[in-house]
């Protein structure tokens, strides 16, 4: 692997100016070239991850702490694999094993981790803004792996990369995001990434799951899924939490499927080559039918997982360049 060069396309500036942030706490406010830079950086890791020999030593000797205050299997695994493939020492701390349960405050926990000289921290927390709060208190780069209902930036990036792989460019694309927009950090990060990159984004949800004034985020809001699907290039389904399907927000899972489930019939309303996405884990037969989720050539759901590892490798690499004194970044 070579040290980073100025983009051949000239889409972003050279060196650290391409991504001048210490942390990645969200995609809100990032410039288009900053997002493109991370996507381009991820491409090399997509290639590497497809080789039988997947390990490099770029982050050798570095310690990455994955501190997950909220349960996660997939994202944690993805970050762990990403760190390990870059040669870093990766430690996972999950809330069930942590002293947060003993009454220690979040800040105290963060300071404790900080004192162990982590070179990067990957943090997931159930409260919006918690990751930024930790980032203000620690000395190393902080990567947000999902904070409450606020942001999940690496998911937004991996989805953008998945879309770019299938569609080439973002200009003129119509992306329909359907599901529990209100509680979804995935939706927010995707909205930031895709609108910044020039796509037209539609969000679709029943009123109780649609946040107020969502149009201010430069998206079109729909309650009618059929209308939202018309002419879409990408259909991104969000997971509906079980606890929200039992009458409080939605009368029942089958009623939700009736209005918002992505069936083969509904998919036909979108463009003929429309890409089907889902951040997982899926409720098959609720927000997405199995035959749609498994539709060869159209469903990008496993590609999303693949891109996830590459994006997270790119983010870990880029955020640690300053401390690794990479030329142009030190």
């Amino acid at each position: 692997m070579t040290s980073p060069e100025p983009s051949p396309s000239g889409r972003y500036p050279a060196g650290s100016a391409a991504f001048p942030h210490r942390d990645l706490t969200g995609l809100a406010g990032l410039a288009p070239w900053e997002i493109l830079f991370l996507l381009d950086e991820a491409e090399q890791w997509v290639e590497l991850n497809r080789q039988p020999q997947k390990r490099v030593d770029r982050l050798a000797g570095l310690t990455i702490i994955n501190a997950f205050f909220e349960n996660s299997t997939r994202t944690l695994l993805s970050f762990e694999i990403a760190g390990k493939r870059l040669g870093a020492d990766v430690v996972n701390m999950q809330v069930a094993q942590s002293s947060v349960k003993k009454g220690e405050t979040l800040i105290d926990t963060a300071m404790t981790l900080n004192a162990m000289h982590a070179d990067a921290m990957v943090i997931r927390h159930q409260s919006s803004g918690a990751v930024r709060l930790i980032a203000e208190k620690v000395d190393c780069p902080v990567l947000n792996a999902g904070d409450g209902q606020h942001e999940h930036p690496t998911q937004g990036l991996l989805d953008a990369l998945t879309i770019r792989k299938a569609k080439g460019d973002f200009g003129g694309l119509t992306v329909t995001i359907c599901g529990d927009i209100l509680h979804s950090r995935v939706a927010r990060s995707n909205i930031h990434a895709l609108t910044t990159l020039g796509a037209d984004v539609r969000v679709c949800a029943p009123p109780a799951l649609m946040p107020a004034d969502i149009e201010a985020m430069k998206v079109a809001a729909f309650h009618d899924f059929d209308a939202a699907l018309k002419g879409a290039d990408v259909v991104m389904m969000l997971r509906l939490q079980q606890e929200r399907m039992s009458g409080q927000f939605i009368p029942s899972p089958r009623e939700y499927r009736h209005l918002y489930g992505l069936t083969m019939d509904r998919l036909s309303l979108a463009k003929g080559d429309a890409l089907v996405m889902h951040p997982g884990p899926m409720n098959r037969g609720v927000e997405i039918d199995s035959n749609v989720a498994d539709l060869a050539g159209r469903s990008a759901i496993t590609t999303q997982v693949e891109m996830g590892v590459a994006i997270r490798m790119a983010c870990l690499d880029v955020l640690t360049r300053r401390s690794r004194k990479v030329e142009g970044w030190a």
Partner: peptide, 15 residues
């Protein structure tokens, strides 16, 4: 309060 800011921040909000 429900509105653009709460939506952007992903904070539980009420009208």
């Amino acid at each position: 309060t429900a509105g653009e800011m709460a939506t952007r921040l992903g904070l539980p909000s009420a009208p």
